[in-house]
Design a protein around this nucleic acid. Structure first.
Lengths: 259, 259
DNA sequence: CACCGCCGTTTCGCATAGCGTAACAATGTT
DNA sequence: AACATTGTTACGCTATGCGAAACGGCGGTG
């Protein structure tokens, strides 16, 4: 799971990040010995790193078990990261408008070299709330946003993704590379992606690409909801609205051009 | 601004964190030279740190200006931190209930050795939304939650806070240490704190302490809203509700006892 | 247009800073 | 009560991250 480019940059910083991401991955508290095993290093080393992170508030230590978990300062930093991403501000009114038009939950996700991260959402009108967690990374092969990223994003993404197994979440999850490639080809032609039942049964999302001045894919807008309300085949007007929203946000970012 | 305990722990990790927090503090992108100045180190060093953070997605570099800003991975980590804090889950139903009872925005904030961080909120019913940012740290002397932290929290907090100047946000902000001490004394007696007009004119908050099994202050619940709806003197039933909510959450965390 | 100044990036040798090993203390388990 | 865990501390070596200075690119200015 740990990236292969751990050799570029500072070793101890990489280790600290590895530790933080380990704590972020597991939802339980983790002790020093276990971390040392999982990270492939020694107890003493991990201890020093935890000391440092503890002093800064990025991890907390349970009084009783002496195990560690992520601390509030990490939350603080994370929120700042969202605030500093100007796409979020720029897109906000368009997202609200799209939610108003469709009544469904709308989500903005950023694309980076590691995949897609949800940065902002506006909840739909339905009393049963269906949404996505801000700050979560989506699976690339089984989410509408992820497929947009694979189809239009950095080729590096697709390349490094092909070496992995495609995790299966439901019977409808795409499982073979050839199926995925066919799907991506269709997405490149239509300009939108959906993922009905692929991550969770009964849930669908339709996503469209957002580009910046340079024409590179930087984000996606998506409508998320129950499969009976969000369906590309039965709601052409919804697709229209999503694509139009993506266009507007792209234009706001300085993108010019249609292809 | 940088903590005095930068000598405990790993130097390069501290520097990386310093850099991240610098980027989080300023809302503009920052170049390497400027960071080196602000952090009291050299360009080369900062460059290596940015390389590392770049490879991991915690910062992004602008194509054009080559300046740096916080990246999406930081947002990812931050959200995980919130998800891993079980108080958030435990408190959720109580917060919703309190919002239902009062109609106002309700916020849960965690207390750590550096102050208070908002971790969760439920927006009020008023069409004009008044709230607080999740992930933001509040001023200790001019927010209801901050004063709760100073009054009941780790004495270390108060001690290190006395050495600082009390920033003034409005004409009503407490500015002298003696005033603050008097206010804290009152808060210790009544068990609740408010901060009318102290951070922003027209806005008030009323907060109560949440304790864990050991009896230590770990969090606060607060109602936030316009000063005409949220006022400790005219709404005794609101205070009742807040204190009761804090009690319930404390009990859920294993706290026993009244004082 | 050539100059200058500033930027981010790269290189390199040195000393420090962080690593691993191993002993220690504090638990809770058998 | 012996033991097998845990988290914590101590210490010496060497890898590692640091600082100073040189490099290339860009944008302004005379």
């Amino acid at each position: 799971m740990t990236s292969s480019d751990n050799d570029i940059g500072l070793k101890s910083v990489h280790l600290t990040i590895d530790a933080l991401e380990l704590l972020s991955r597991e939802q339980r508290d983790i002790g020093i010995s276990e971390m040392a095993n999982l990270l492939g290093t020694t107890k003493g080393t991990v201890f020093r790193h935890m000391q440092t992170l503890l002093a800064r508030g990025y991890v907390t230590q349970s009084e009783s078990s002496h195990r560690y978990r992520l601390g509030p300062q990490a939350a603080c930093l994370g929120q700042s990261a969202i605030d500093h991403t100007d796409i979020v501000e720029r897109a906000r009114p368009h997202l609200s408008a799209l939610r108003e038009a469709t009544g469904e939950t709308v989500a903005l996700s950023l694309v980076d070299q590691q995949g897609v991260v949800i940065l902002s959402k506006v909840m739909g009108k339905s009393p049963l709330e269906i949404g996505v967690r801000v700050g979560s990374r989506l699976a690339l092969h089984s989410s509408a946003q992820g497929k947009i990223a694979l189809a239009f994003g950095p080729s590096l993404l697709l390349a490094q993704y092909e070496r992995q197994d495609l995790a299966s979440f439901t019977p409808h999850t795409i499982e073979t590379t050839s199926e995925l490639k066919a799907a991506l080809e269709r997405i490149r032609q239509t300009g939108i992606a959906e993922a009905p039942n692929e991550y969770m049964l009964g849930v669908n999302a339709i996503a469209a690409p957002i580009r910046d001045r340079s024409g590179a894919l930087v984000a996606t807008v998506a409508v998320v909801g129950s499969i009976q309300n969000v369906d590309a085949r039965t709601k052409p007007e919804m697709i229209e609205a999503i694509v139009a929203t993506a266009q507007k946000i792209s234009t706001d970012l300085g993108y010019v051009g249609n292809v």
